[in-house]
């Protein structure tokens, strides 16, 4: 059918439109400074690594590797904590059926309506009194207190039959054993969704690090790049090189987990 082929080509063209900015970013980051602002040709006339070398050589001003490590540390910790704590809580609410668990659940859901902006200043005061400002913990702990994970996993667990867990209990398995050996594996699809969304959200978090961190060495990538851009806004080549390097890890993750990531995203709309 001819129409189908037209559609195929058209959709690929649309897809290219979405990818083009990224391709341009990468190509331009290989251009020498003089060529950057004269976009006659998207492909560099003289390929150069200079922008990347410059960025990496100024590690004192822009400790790129540190930022990358910090980002990985923060995002991994947030993801780990959210997965473990939320699943424990959801287990307590839906399986142990603790009295007051339902009310707690509604409290958590209601709190999700409050705009994040409201939390900035109070959380700053709390982190300050805990002496946690300007540490990775300042980004990790508040994020792990967010309600989305509990909401998602509780909803998911509610929809699963309890028979297997009950059988395990009767077989003499402890509650903790049931959680670890039965419920966790059963929740795998929801956990994967939650993990992916949490990781990406944490990786891209901008306002948190901006407000709770002071030291350049403690920055995560998004604020690091923003700092770089604020200082060198006139030097597109280098700014684009930093942007490309900051985006690369996420693209790598996307390339590997493309299916899971896209499916996580799509499943958010289907929950009851």
């Amino acid at each position: 059918m001819k129409g189908r082929w037209v559609l195929l080509v058209a959709m690929f063209a649309v897809g290219l439109l979405f990818v083009a900015p990224m391709v341009l970013m990468v190509l331009t980051s290989f251009k020498p400074e003089a060529e950057v602002l004269n976009p006659e040709s998207a492909i560099p006339k003289h390929w150069t690594l200079q922008n990347y070398l410059d960025v990496l050589n100024w590690s004192e001003e822009a400790p790129f590797v540190r930022w990358l490590m910090n980002s990985v540390l923060v995002s991994s910790s947030v993801t780990f904590l959210v997965l473990v704590l939320s699943s424990l809580a959801a287990f307590g609410i839906t399986r142990v059926r603790v009295p007051g668990g339902g009310a707690f659940f509604y409290l958590v859901v209601a709190s999700m309506m409050v705009p994040g902006l409201l939390f900035l200043v109070p959380v700053y005061f709390i982190l300050n009194s805990l002496r946690l400002l300007d540490t990775p913990a300042a980004l990790i702990l508040p994020a792990a207190g967010g309600g989305f994970g509990v909401f998602l996993l509780t909803q998911f667990m509610k929809s699963l039959p309890k028979a297997i867990e009950e059988a395990a209990l009767i077989d003499g398995c402890s509650w903790l054993g049931v959680y670890y050996h039965v419920s966790l594996p059963l929740c795998a699809p929801a956990m994967a969704t939650l993990g992916v969304l949490t990781f990406i959200g944490s990786w891209n978090d901008f306002v948190g690090p901006l407000v709770y961190l002071d030291s350049i060495q403690n920055y995560t990538l998004p604020v690091g790049i923003a700092l770089y851009q604020a200082s060198y806004y006139t030097e597109y080549g280098r700014t684009l090189a930093t942007s490309a390097m900051a985006t690369a890890p996420l693209l790598l993750i996307f390339a590997i987990f493309q299916k899971q990531i896209v499916e996580s995203m799509s499943s958010t709309g289907l929950k009851d």
């Binding site: 649309v14 897809g15 290219l16 979405f18 990818v19 900015p21 990224m22 970013m25 990406i200 990786w203 891209n204 901008f206 990538l221 998004p222 604020v223 790049i225 923003a226 851009q229 942007s243 900051a246 985006t247 996420l250 693209l251 996307f254 493309q258 990531i261 896209v262 995203m265």
Partner: peptide, 13 residues
């Protein structure tokens, strides 16, 4: 995957 890609970008970039 192509149209989804920009979603992965951080605000700063």
């Amino acid at each position: 995957a192509m149209v989804f890609l920009p979603t992965m970008f951080t605000v700063a970039v």
